[in-house]
Design a protein around this nucleic acid. Structure first.
Length: 490
RNA sequence: GGGUCGUUAGCUCAGCUGGUAGAGCAGCGGACUUUUAAUCCGUUGGUCGGCGGUUCGAAUCCGCCACGACCUACCA
């Protein structure tokens, strides 16, 4: 730990005095009011009207600003709802109390009882009759005007960010509203919310490298889940016909402005519906989230306008590639391989046209998908859990939603044919054998579940963090995760 | 993993082609009974991210390392 500096040392001395007086860290002060509520209910009243009614109030909060002017002091308190000014004076509060108060520090948590009045400049202010120091802050706050600018400190000491940067608080309020809105839609439509294992003996449901851990009593390796998908579909087998989960996934991969090792996904499944239902529902959910979160459907993101109100466009994956000027048969492995080589994209001989087509899409087309766009017509090769298209078994009934070139959602008609699923797991296992660290494991228990019969169904996943980034104009996923993963402090 | 940029007081930042560290805020002392980033006077506070090197002399130039930001790669 760092050495205490002089500022902290001075505050420790003040705390020592408080302890000696027997009043350090009390928990018997009860506030009755919140700053925002007082402002809402009395902020519009005139100075004279407030003087007549003498409204009593009590508030508590962190002292953010202090303006001592001799026999009176103005200070600004911040509570969970907002800020309000307080007024402490020799006349009303008492000279001794006022003198002590002047030595309290910015950052201290203070409780105030008194009556409301308006200053000559018209600011609603709580005139203190009693004032108490509820919690001594030993460390100084960041600069009162510029706030906290250092990105690293904002991420590592998020509490400071939340104290001094109102925008940071707003981001997480938006996040909460987004999740609430999504949950509300799903519950209203009879989906059951569940929680499935974070610790899985076989990590499945996505192509990703997992975190590995060990259970001592069972003496077995476990993996942090990369997706809840296979468990949620087991529930569909079990008769939970509409089911969803909002929870963390963990992927042992790179960290970037779009990737955090743990991130939050909504996954939901519906029996007796298909991918088109899921696609429409995804669009509805994004819109509901946008409306609830920011109250409008045209959002500014990093200088661009993104319209969530107009119907999202739909584009076949090969069409998206052709749109970028690529000609020829996009199921011709040789042609795809040549194009990829030309673009400098490494690829292996074990990959078929489906995998190469997807790689080409990511290389040339993905970055152009700024407006909300559903990409459809995904090859079966790269969709091992999705149902094949009846009219073209090399494709699947699958979609991905892109907004601002980021994958926001992924859904499909579910593969409920246990024999096809077993075959696809075997193919995945073969690739894992060949060195593909992201290939899936063969999950025999999941096949056994499918063998009991899963109703025809559709499912989808929606990345909450990226959606919140979009709705809060956040350039980095770290801005929408309270405690993003960072290297240990040096 | 590669590239670019950054790291100076608790916070926000200056510091030129190398001459031995500054401001504002916060703190401390003083003045001030309606302030609003209060104001005014005085004042404390630094291993200039770390380790080496070049030099008479390094916050400044060079190398390595740490951490961060951005870009890129990886990530369906």
């Amino acid at each position: 730990m760092e050495e205490d500096n002089r500022l902290i040392e001075e505050r420790r001395e003040k705390l020592k005095a408080l302890r000696a007086a027997g009043s350090a860290y009390p928990n018997d002060f009860r506030r009755r009011d919140l700053a925002s509520q007082l402002n809402a209910s009395h902020g519009e009243k005139t100075k004279a009207a407030l003087e007549q009614t003498a409204v009593a109030a009590s508030i508590a909060g962190r002292m953010m600003l202090k303006r001592p002017m001799g026999k009176v002091t103005f200070a600004t308190l911040q509570d969970g709802s907002g800020r309000i000014q307080i007024y402490v004076s020799n006349d009303l509060t008492g000279e001794r109390e006022h003198e002590e108060f002047k030595h309290w520090d910015l950052g201290d948590i203070v409780g105030v009882e008194g009556t409301l009045f308006k200053t000559n400049k018209g600011e609603l202010t709580l005139q203190a009759k009693k004032i108490r120091l509820l919690s001594k802050a030993l460390r100084p706050l960041p600069e009162k005007f510029h706030g906290l600018a250092d990105q690293e400190t904002r991420y590592r000491q998020r509490y400071l960010d939340l104290i001094v940067n109102p925008q940071a608080r707003e981001v997480f309020a938006v996040r909460s509203r987004v999740i609430h809105a999504l949950r509300e839609v799903l519950l209203k439509e009879s989906y059951l919310e569940v929680e499935t294992p974070m610790l899985q003996p076989i990590p499945g449901g996505a192509a990703a490298r997992p975190f590995k851990t060990h259970h001592n009593a069972l003496d077995m390796d476990l993996y942090l889940r990369i997706a809840p998908e296979l468990y949620l579909k087991r529930l569909v087998v079990g008769g939970v016909e509409r089911v969803f989960e909002i929870n963390r996934n963990f992927r042992n991969e790179g960290i970037s402005t779009r990737h955090n090792p743990e991130f939050t996904m909504l996954e939901w499944y519906c029996a007796y519906e298909d991918w088109k239902y899921m696609l429409d529902m995804t669009e509805r959910l994004v819109r509901a989230a946008g409306q609830a979160a920011v109250g409008k459907l045209v959002v500014g993101y990093q200088g661009r306008q993104i319209d969530l109100a107009k119907p999202f466009s739909r584009l076949g994956l090969p069409d998206a590639i052709r749109k970028q000027g690529v000609q020829g048969d996009l199921r011709d492995r040789g042609l795809l391989s040549k194009k990829l080589t030309g673009l400098g994209v490494e690829h292996g001989s074990g990959q078929g046209w489906g995998a190469l087509q997807l790689m080409l899409f990511e290389a040339v087309a993905e970055k152009h998908l700024v407006d909300p766009t559903f990409i459809v017509d995904f090859p079966a090769e790269v969709s091992p859990l999705a149902r094949r298209r009846d009219s073209d078994p090399q494709l699947t009934d699958r979609f991905e939603l892109f907004i601002d070139a980021k994958e926001i959602a992924n859904g499909f008609s579910e593969l409920n044919d246990p024999e096809d699923q077993a075959a696809r797991f075997l193919e995945q296992a073969r690739r894992k054998e060949a060195g593909d660290q992201e290939a899936m494991y063969y999950d025999a228990d999941y096949i056994r579940a499918l063998e009991h019969g899963m109703p025809p169904a559709a499912g989808a996943g929606l990345g909450i963090d990226r959606l919140v980034m979009l709705l809060t104009d956040a350039p980095s996923i770290r801005d929408v995760i309270l405690f993003p993963q960072l290297r240990p402090e040096g």
